[in-house]
Simulated assay, not measured.
Amino acid sequence: MNPLKVLVVDEFDSDLALEQSLKQHGYQVATLKLRALNLLDVVKTLQPDAVVLNLYTPDDKVLNMMLEINQQHSVPVIMFAEDQQTETINKVIKAGVSAYIVDGLEPKRIKTIIDVAIARFREQQALKNELKKTKDQLEERKLIDRAKAILIKSQGYSEDQAYHALRKLAMDRKVSLGEMAKNVISMAELFK
């Protein structure tokens, strides 16, 4: 099994404990300083398995970068910080940070924290994917029902006949039932 690639973004110049600890636990580590860094481009280029930030407090610029990373790349983000304010914690969670560790950068705990954050992130991703799949199925079902209603009204079909006609059209054209429903709806709107 390949070692996990971890991108470390460190605000503190003198502290290498985080990087050294990660390397001791077998992670591949790339460490960058926070100053004038476009983190989104770095994540896109390096494609790390996790991003770890070590900073005093996450400002709005950092939080916006975290939000963009979560929207464009599927990667867990672990943040070590000193700021314990409830407002900051709420902002960090809204930005999609997987783990926010306050005042707890102890080398012996780092591996466990990262492993738990990655596991939680994967579980959340699985839930998001399942939710998206369910929403897509519901949306497709609505399209099919709407297309059936069009066929019932325009062709005088029963609901069962409309479904079978829609299904036959989909099979004949080698498209999904949902795609065929979209086509029927589009055609009906075209002839209005």
Rank of each mutant, 00 (worst) to 15 (best):
L63Y: 09
V29P: 03
L46W: 01
V75I: 05
G96H: 07
V42T: 09
P58W: 03
Q28H: 07
H73E: 01
F80M: 13
D83P: 08
N90C: 10
V42F: 09
K111H: 14
E87H: 05
S98G: 10
P58C: 02
V29N: 04
V51C: 05
G104K: 10
L53Y: 04
I93L: 11
E68I: 13
I89F: 07
K61Q: 01
D59S: 06
N38W: 07
E106S: 09
I69M: 09
R109C: 03
V42E: 04
Y56D: 10
V102G: 06
Q47L: 10
Q28E: 12
T88F: 02
N54H: 15
V52K: 12
S98N: 07
I110R: 02
T45I: 00
I89E: 15
P76K: 01
T88D: 03
L105E: 07
V102T: 14
A81G: 06
Y56R: 15
S98R: 08
Q85M: 11
N70C: 04
H73M: 06
I93M: 07
L67E: 11
V75Q: 00
M79H: 07
L34M: 06
L53S: 02
M65F: 15
F80W: 11
E82Q: 01
K61G: 06
L63E: 14
I110G: 00
L53I: 10
P48K: 14
Q84F: 14
P107G: 13
K108M: 15
L32T: 13
Y100T: 06
F80V: 05
V29G: 02
L39M: 10
Q72I: 01
I89V: 14
Y27R: 15
A81H: 08
D41M: 10
V97A: 00
D83T: 12
L67W: 01
D41K: 05
R109G: 01
P76W: 05
I89P: 11
Q28W: 09
Q84E: 14
L67M: 14
P58G: 06
E68H: 00
I89Y: 04
V43T: 10
Y27D: 00
